[in-house]
């Protein structure tokens, strides 16, 4: 497989670090070299959090060079838009529908950039879904990230069995079934729904 550059973006507290962890473990299990990045620290308190995963034959830097991103998982639309400059043309962005409003919007100093987010579809292949709603449908809002990983799994040459094993190893035992269901929902998601 050529190097695949995966970007994960969201808001502090949305479990971005856990997502990059699961993706990297799955890639390593299937024999790929992998490196990840996570922005951790102050931003974890509701700030902008992003991570990246690079998968391939031999990976040197964990950083995705500008314009070389292949797929972006946006747990929040504004955060997906914020990092879109890293993405290559016609790459895929999977974007959660639910908005999380930052301070300038909450205080009515700035408008949430709906138009800019809407325009992303002119340059990228956009897939939208409400991951929290899907997660609630399997009975656990915390598996929202797993729905996202399910969508991602369609774009990588990593075996379904591997994804499922890695999920089992990383989530609490009582939440395994909910996570596996969430993964399937993501994997079977089609944008026409």
């Amino acid at each position: 497989m050529d190097t695949k550059n995966i970007m994960v973006a969201g808001v502090g507290g949305q479990g971005i670090v856990l997502m990059t962890g699961i993706i990297s473990q799955a890639a390593a299990r299937d024999g790929y070299d992998v490196k990840t990045n996570d922005v951790v620290g102050l931003a974890q308190r509701g700030g902008m959090v992003w991570g990246s995963v690079r998968i391939g034959g031999k990976i040197y830097s964990p950083n995705i060079p500008v314009g070389e991103g292949d797929i972006l998982l946006g747990m929040e639309p504004l955060e997906a838009y914020r990092w879109s400059h890293l993405m290559s043309e016609n790459s895929t962005m999977v974007i959660n529908k639910k908005r999380n409003y930052p301070i300038p919007v909450l205080l009515e100093k700035e408008e949430y950039p709906e138009k800019d987010i809407e325009k992303l579809k002119e340059k990228f292949n956009i897939i939208t879904l409400d991951v929290e709603k899907e997660a609630k449908s399997v009975g656990n809002i915390k598996v929202a990230n797993t729905v996202m990983i399910g969508v991602l799994s369609k774009y990588l040459h990593i075996r379904t069995e591997t994804w499922k094993n890695i999920l089992k190893e990383n989530v609490p035992s009582k939440a395994i079934d909910e996570n596996l269901k969430a993964f399937e929902i993501g994997r079977n998601h089609s944008n026409n729904k």
Binding site: A43, R45, G46, G47, L78, Y81, I103, P104
Partner: peptide, 9 residues
């Protein structure tokens, strides 16, 4: 991209 900032809170 110059867009709405998201300071931690």
């Amino acid at each position: 991209i110059d867009t709405v900032s998201r300071p931690p809170m």
